[in-house]
Each structure stands twice: as structure tokens, then as C-alpha cells.
Write a protein that binds this DNA or RNA. Structure first.
Lengths: 103, 103
DNA sequence: ATCGAAGTTCGATGATTATCGATATATGGT
DNA sequence: ACCATATATCGATAATCATCGAACTTCGAT
């Protein structure tokens, strides 16, 4: 398992890339869970895809600069990235609100 | 040419579908032009793709419930759909603002 | 009646994507 | 040392997508 996962500079990510990353039901569901601004582990995301597919979606969100992944032991703790919220504040906050209430 | 183009009920479109439709540079550029809330014709969208490709993107936005297409003669007038703005108000308004300023 | 212009649709193609299972790697527990 | 757990990565596959050019349709003008 990779000990350190790469986190891009959110300023290098375009709005289209962010919206594209958010435009998927599985990833929106993940974002809805992360909307409480706390760290979460894999078991918190109730999505019906296999582990490797979930990894793929997590990678997509991470590479869009939206999430921060902290490895601790064999676990991966995931949370929203503050820098991402600062990049497109109103867009991300409204999406979080929308997907948290009625995903 | 199709005389009437179908416009879906925006309430039947999910947030993921909307964000997916918006998650493309060409379509975001179109939305940036439409952000002034006025009707526009094809020539207003300065995108460097062919006519058929532009049609494809227009169709994507229309089927996401985001745009209204009015045929007049051989011309097609496109505008934002009010119902779409009512569906996800804060999301769409913030995206419009973001892409209009720094697409 | 014919022609050109505008825009959609169709068919094809290459690129991207979502998904899975298998494999790999690191960690924690015994 | 060994084994189970958690997750990432790889390889494959099927589906979706962006793009183009060609053909088609409608309309306006000559």
C-alpha cells in the first residue's frame, strides 16, 4: 500500500475538473458523508461497489483536490480539503449542502 | 432539422447528472455565455469544435434540463432554463458566477 | 424551383471511465 | 515469524464520451 498519497495543488485544478469529479453518484455519496467536515474511514461510505472501485473513486476525488487522505496504520482517513473549499467556496459549499440533504 | 427539441422535466434530473453535464470545458464555456440570462445563438459561443460537436454539447446541456432551445427559422436560440435554476438554485448560481468570471 | 445556410442526426473512431478480480504492500495482532 | 486486515495498484473489459465528416432536414432567398 502506498504510504503517502499525492495531493495536488487545488489552485491547479479547473472548475470543469472539479465538477466532473463531482458528477458521479458514488462520489457524490462520498461527499455527502464528508460534508460533516470530519474524518471518515471506508466503512462510513455506504456505496455498493467493490473495494477496488471505491479506491478508484477516492483517487478521483483526491486528484481533483477535493479530499485529503491520511494513512494511519492500514487505515485511510479521508476528509474534505480546506484549500478546496477556498478555491470554489460557493460552488463547493452549495454542492455539499445539496448532496447532504437529498442525494 | 428537428422542429421541436425535447426538454425534460428538471425535477427528474439528479444532481449528479447536472454536475456531470457541467463538468466539461466546452459546456462550461457555453454556460458562461448564457450566464447573462439572455438568448444566444450559435455564433455567440466561441468554442473550437465543429458544428456537430457543438450540437452534441448543446444536447447534453438540454437533456440535463439546463437550457431551453427555441427554433426560429433555421436558427436556434438558446437560454438558461428558469426551472433548472429553481431546482438547484445555489449550486447553479454559484457555478454560473464562477465560470462567468474565470472560465 | 433551386440553391445556400443553419443546425441536427448518423456512423465511425479513438479516448476516457466504471467496474471487477487478482495481486501487491504495509500494518497490527498472535 | 506468521497471518489476517485494510487498502492501493494492475490488467482486463465493457460502456460511455468527445470528436469528426457526411448526410439529411428545414427554412429563406433568389
Amino acid at each position: 500500500m502506498a504510504r503517502r498519497l499525492s495531493h495536488p495543488d487545488p489552485r491547479a485544478v479547473s472548475l470543469a475538473e472539479v465538477l466532473s469529479a463531482l458528477g458521479d453518484p458514488v462520489r457524490l455519496r462520498i461527499m455527502a458523508v464528508l460534508a460533516d467536515r470530519r474524518e471518515h474511514v471506508r466503512g462510513d461510505f455506504e456505496v455498493d461497489v467493490g473495494p477496488s472501485t471505491l479506491s478508484h473513486h477516492m483517487k478521483t476525488l483526491r486528484e481533483a483536490g477535493l479530499t485529503y487522505h491520511r494513512m494511519d496504520g492500514t487505515r485511510c482517513f479521508v476528509s474534505l480539503r480546506e484549500e478546496a473549499l477556498e478555491r470554489f467556496p460557493s460552488v463547493l459549499n452549495s454542492v455539499l449542502e445539496a448532496c447532504a440533504t437529498q442525494s
